[in-house]
Computed example of a mutant assay.
Amino acid sequence: MTTSSTCGDGSARDIRAVDIGHGAIGSGRSTRRRPDLRIAQFIAEALGGADNVLNVGAGAGSHESAAHTVTAVEPSGPPRARRPARLTRAIDAVAENLPFADGEFDGAMALFSVHQWRDPGAGLREIRRVTHGPVVVLTRAPDLVRDFWLYAYAPEVLDIEARRHPPVEDLAAALGGTGTIRTVPIPLDCTDGFDEAYYGRPEMLLDPAARQACSAWSFIDDEVRERFDGTLRSDLASGAWDQRFGHLRTQPTYDGSLVILRATH
């Protein structure tokens, strides 16, 4: 696969659905991880107008508005149960063994889920098998995860994130063909509350519910959480955080580790 950078706007339309898994994540996810329409536009553009789209690791259906008609796959029961009534039921299946015919879909997407699969390479090869159009993967580039300011306060959290996410180049190799790897700018008021969504709103991460919505926080102990909370509170009160990172409070977007991989035959 070749890689390059591109840019542009996308569009969103109507929906149908089928799913694949996110597993158990903190209780704050449903309220803090709300789809951001600006990120959805990037996904829609990458899908290129594909009509019949497979969503693998679909969870509760976040960002499915980026596609026209969606078949969702999700192996975990709790996310399937959280799908809104407007979406059809998700299929209980895993990425590595999809119950579909070769080339059945015009396009496919995997959004914030590849790092949770048992075998990402096998899952992506299976998605390529059942898709004759573009495959779009929204993920995080592990080599960029530690560049975020959170690393100064809770390095354990971002070390976990970096280890969990497969290298984007490995994902591209599994899909084969040609494609692009593109950084997705994160808006200052991003509604999808993964950690970098709060790049200019550090106070938000003092809320345990906001942290629980980011699954990496579930892998650390209370000592790390308490140290993070105390240190960040102290630096916000003294102005130390703003001295180092205050420019982020008014920066419209942040180019962090969030990327879209788009692959075609």
Rank of each mutant, 00 (worst) to 15 (best):
C7T: 15
G8R: 12
R13N: 11
D14A: 14
I15G: 07
A17Y: 07
I20Q: 03
G21E: 04
G23A: 07
A24E: 15
S27L: 08
S27H: 10
S30P: 03
R34C: 12
R38Y: 04
I39K: 00
A44L: 02
E45S: 14
A46V: 09
A46W: 06
A50D: 07
G57S: 12
A58L: 07
S65D: 14
H68D: 13
H68R: 15
T71G: 03
A72H: 01
P78I: 03
R80W: 02
P84K: 09
T88R: 12
A90E: 05
I91D: 02
A93R: 08
N97Y: 04
G103I: 08
D106I: 03
G107H: 02
G107T: 08
A110E: 04
L111W: 01
L111A: 04
F112K: 06
Q116Y: 08
W117K: 03
R118M: 12
P120R: 02
G121V: 08
A122W: 01
L124P: 01
R125K: 14
R125I: 07
E126T: 06
I127F: 03
R128P: 03
V130A: 06
H132P: 00
V135C: 08
V136I: 12
R140Y: 05
R140Q: 14
R140A: 09
A141S: 15
P142F: 02
D143I: 07
R146I: 10
D147W: 00
W149Y: 14
Y151H: 15
E156G: 08
E156F: 02
A162F: 05
H165P: 07
H165L: 09
P166V: 05
P166I: 05
P167R: 14
E169W: 02
L171T: 06
A172G: 13
A172I: 07
A173N: 11
L175V: 12
T183M: 09
T183A: 14
P185K: 04
E196T: 11
G200Q: 03
P202F: 04
L205I: 13
P208H: 06
D221N: 14
R225W: 10
D229I: 06
T231A: 13
S234F: 02
D235G: 06
L236P: 03
L236V: 09
A237K: 09
A237Y: 00
S238Q: 06
G256A: 05
S257K: 00
S257I: 01
L258A: 09
V259T: 07
I260P: 01
R262C: 07
A263W: 04
